[in-house]
Nucleic acid binder design. Structure first.
Length: 367
RNA sequence: GUGGUCGUAGCUCAAUGGUUAGAGUCCCAGAUUGUGAUUCUGGUUGUUGCGGGUUCGAAUCCCGUCGAUCACC
């Protein structure tokens, strides 16, 4: 099931499996494009919803698109805004046309539908645009999920058609599988999208609060019905072992805020699991975050120093941990690719997952 | 030296004479999955300066004492 792939875009070739750092507001938070290149990030995310609200498309158009605006000349994938409309905006009203909502910044009334989303993404000039979908909450009643899915499929077709006529020639549009936790809906979604013949497919509606098994199941319900010669993208995922497990299930692309977000709160990834650099145990620690790590933070700074920076709320602290965590994620994908190339992925997967200790909350004081 | 004001958690401060003296911050942990740096959730911490007294009951009232601070000499 796990596979290697190659995705060609106007701004470069992407070897899969790949992790895509998230750069919601035309920046991967705390990290410069130079540093992203040094980290060997091959493709990053941008966000329709956020950039539409601020700075707005007039500004993006003025700067000739997102690549030039943020000075990143590698590939960019833009999210359609479907997820953010549901996770961030207030007072949304869904109709066949699209979603009316209030901006999370100032409450201003806004509207994004399939065509507006594609229009925005065309203006952004991303290499990969996502269809505008509805991301239903978890848990979700079957009837609601079915109706939502049908509408999302109609939207997908509208996105594809709008894009075929108006989008810049270099831009590809990926479909998004929905269907909540229902196997037959996931299958229906994947088959319908495959019929529409997208150049890539995402599994959406995951990491919305469901247990991890549900997340895995949603992927397993979807991938068997997607074409094998097109990239598959698990949206918003995941932890390191989750990604390895998803790759074993035929996923090629990931994006996740986890490495950058938790970096800003002092948590760093290692092969043994996450460590919280704020913990008192690191005060006098002269070692790097992870022994043998080749990232800038690990080659130059101690845990004790990083702990100090983070406790003192110094910006360098969150930058250094962000660099480490991104390096960790990007390097993990490289290790996976190497393992796939040498035919040792199964062994790598076993070793990695058993070594990684998930930081489950120890709630012994409950009650 | 005289007179006034004030001493409460590490810090800044609450608390009609009436449950187990609270809050913010700090500190200690945890959370974070298509973004949240400055976020969220928990938790530890007190001889109410000290010593007496009044009272059923004192951080609170009285006396003494120590300390800080201000004014005057």
């Amino acid at each position: 099931m796990a596979r290697r792939g190659r995705l060609t875009t106007a701004h470069g070739v992407i070897e899969t499996p790949i992790f895509m750092p998230v750069g919601t507001q035309a920046t991967v938070k705390a990290v410069s494009p130079d540093e992203l290149r040094e980290l060997q990030a091959r493709i990053i995310l941008g966000n329709t919803y956020h950039l539409f609200i601020r700075p707005g498309m007039e500004v993006i158009r003025h700067f000739h698109g997102l690549h030039q605006f943020m000075n990143w000349d590698g590939p960019i994938l833009t999210d359609s805004g479907g997820f953010q409309v549901f996770s961030l905006a207030k007072l949304r009203k869904i109709t066949e046309e699209g979603v009316a909502f209030q901006s999370h910044l100032d409450g201003a009334p806004c509207f994004i539908g399939p065509e507006t989303s594609m229009q925005i993404q065309a203006t952004l000039g991303s290499d990969i645009a996502m269809v505008f979908d509805e991301c239903p909450p978890y848990p979700c009643e079957h009837d609601y999920a079915a109706n939502s899915l049908d509408r999302t499929l109609r939207w997908a077709k509208r996105c594809r058609d709008w894009s075929a006529e108006h989008a810049p020639a270099h831009q590809r549009v990926f479909g998004i599988v929905q269907g909540s936790s229902y196997p037959e809906l996931r299958r229906r979604s994947a088959e319908a999208l495959a019929e529409m013949d997208f150049p890539g497919y995402a599994v959406g509606g995951v990491s919305v609060g469901e247990p991890e098994e549900g997340m895995m199941a949603a992927v397993e319900y979807s991938t068997p019905y997607l074409p094998t010669n097109k990239p598959r993208y698990a949206m918003g995922l995941g932890t390191p072992p989750q990604m390895v497990e998803m790759i074993a299930r035929g996923i090629d692309m990931f994006d996740c805020v986890l490495p950058t977000r938790i970096a800003r709160n002092g948590t760093a990834f290692t092969d043994a699991g996450t460590i919280n650099l704020k913990n008192a145990q690191f005060i006098m620690d002269k070692g790097p975050i992870e022994t043998g790590c080749e990232c800038y933070a690990c080659k130059n700074f101690t845990r004790g120093y990083l702990r100090h920076l983070i406790k003192a709320e110094e910006i360098l602290g969150l930058r250094l941990v962000s660099l480490h965590n991104l390096h960790y994620y990007l390097n993990l994908m490289k290790r996976v690719r190497d393992a796939l190339d040498s035919g040792e992925f199964a062994a790598f997967r076993r070793g990695f997952v058993s070594n990684y200790r998930p930081s489950h909350s120890v709630s012994e004081n409950d009650g």
